[in-house]
Structure formats: structure tokens, C-alpha cells
Design a protein around this nucleic acid. Structure first.
Lengths: 116, 116
DNA sequence: CATAGACACCTTGCAGTGAAAGGTCTCGCC
DNA sequence: GGCGAGACCTTTCACTGCAAGGTGTCTATG
């Protein structure tokens, strides 16, 4: 399977990142690693994709950041979900469920049900 | 459930339209009706969304058009899938399957499987 | 006949998004 | 000292969905 195209991904990266942060604070570089690993070959997000998304989420106050020193001694910018972010994640999950429903309904047209 | 947002939909409308045309030729206005009906309240595409997509698909030669008179006597622009369009639909279905896989993997983190 | 409304097509402009490309700094190691 | 990896960042670009606004035709109604 080929890599996922931008248009296929569009709008869902935000949800993916929020979902990662749901499991605990993390920082940009690590979030990228996490996602790319969990997605196997399907997803290979670069940093040029991750960071702008993080900044947008921060600006919208769905996540908040704290500078902290990591294990390696280097400074890291740890992000965590805000209450607003949790609510957004709930909403995004619903949106995703809705999209799945619609796509299923159209992509697998099980012998259209004899229009009354 | 609220209506699907643009960002949630992004990139998938093309696939939806191709899938509709897979079941036989149709025209813009009707395609919109079809999709909106099948999606229930989740999707309410306006014509300003449908037509531009059709034009892009036509330009990329995934669909082809023919003017014809419909039942109502009015002129309609009937679109049909081209061979190239069928191949694109196959690809798009795979892309969709991939996205579902990734989203599932991240959204439902079933007690991450004890990293070897 | 005139008007309304559904059918059916179209275009322009905007905001948001993912991604590539390019750049900086620090730490640990050779 | 220099190099690679970790970790951050920005600018620029193409694309997409959609609202808004516009045209014309057919049928039905008053």
C-alpha cells in the first residue's frame, strides 16, 4: 500500500495528534516518531508537518506547552491537552465516526435497498 | 451528530463522487442529491462544492461528460467513469482503507502491545 | 400572461491544510 | 574541532471545500 496522500489525510492529523497527547504529554519530535511508528509505512510525517499543526492547536488553546529538560539534557517543548482540547478530541472522534459512516454507505453500496 | 466539517471531508468527496458514478452515469445535480440522501444529515453538499469537483475530475480525465436530454426535457450533463477513473477509484479505496487503519491504530490504543 | 419555484448549470474568492525545503541550536562522541 | 542526531522553527506552495452569487429553462399556479 502506498503512502497516504495529503488529500486523504487532510483534517485528520489534528485528531491524530490530539489522540497521542490524550495518553500523556509529549513533544513534537516524539509525537512524530509515535505516529510514524504506529502507522507503519502508511504515514511518514515530516517535522514541517508536525510543528505547524502543534502551533495551530496551541493558538486555538487545544493544547498547552511547557519547556522542560528531557532525559537527554536537551530542552524540549512538552505539550499537553487542555480541557478544551479534550472536548475537541471528543468532537473529532464523532466527526471521524460520521465520515466512516458516510464513506461506508457510499463505497459499499449493498444492492441499493429497493427504493420504495 | 453535527454535520461533517470541511476538514473532516477533505479529499474524500472526489472518492465519493467516483463511487457514485461507478454505479452508472449521472449528472451534477443528481449526484448531489444521491450523496446527501445516502449520508443522511451528515452531509449536505451544495452545488458550489459538487461542480468544481466534477470539473477537476473531468480535466484529469477520470470522468467524461455527455450532454443529453433527461426525462424532464431539460439538458443535463451526464458524467461517466473513464478507465482511468476506475483505476483512480481503486487507488482511492485503498487510500481510504489505509486511513481507517491508521486512525484506528491511534484512536483506539488498545493497551499498547508491550513493546518487545 | 406573469410569477414562482424547482431543476440544472456555472464561476469567483476565501480560509484552511499538509508538505517540502531550508534553517538554527545543542548535546554527546570520536 | 567536527559531525550526527535530537529538537526546534519558518516560509512558501498547491490544493480543497464552500459560500455567495449568477444564468437559464421548464412546469405549475394564480
Amino acid at each position: 500500500m502506498a503512502r497516504l496522500r495529503k488529500q486523504t489525510l487532510d483534517g485528520n492529523i489534528e485528531t491524530l495528534i490530539l489522540a497521542v497527547l490524550e495518553q500523556g504529554p509529549s513533544y513534537g519530535y516524539q509525537i512524530g516518531r509515535d505516529l510514524n511508528q504506529r502507522a507503519g509505512e502508511l504515514l511518514q510525517l515530516g517535522e514541517g508537518t508536525i510543528y505547524p499543526v502543534l502551533h495551530r492547536l496551541e493558538e486555538r488553546e487545544l493544547i498547552a506547552a511547557t519547556w522542560r529538560k528531557g532525559d537527554t539534557g536537551r530542552q524540549r517543548k512538552y505539550y499537553r491537552l487542555t480541557p478544551k482540547g479534550r472536548r475537541a478530541l471528543v468532537e473529532n472522534r464523532q466527526q471521524w465516526a460520521g465520515l466512516v459512516q458516510v464513506m461506508d454507505a457510499v463505497l459499499q453500496p449493498r444492492k441499493r435497498p429497493a427504493r420504495a
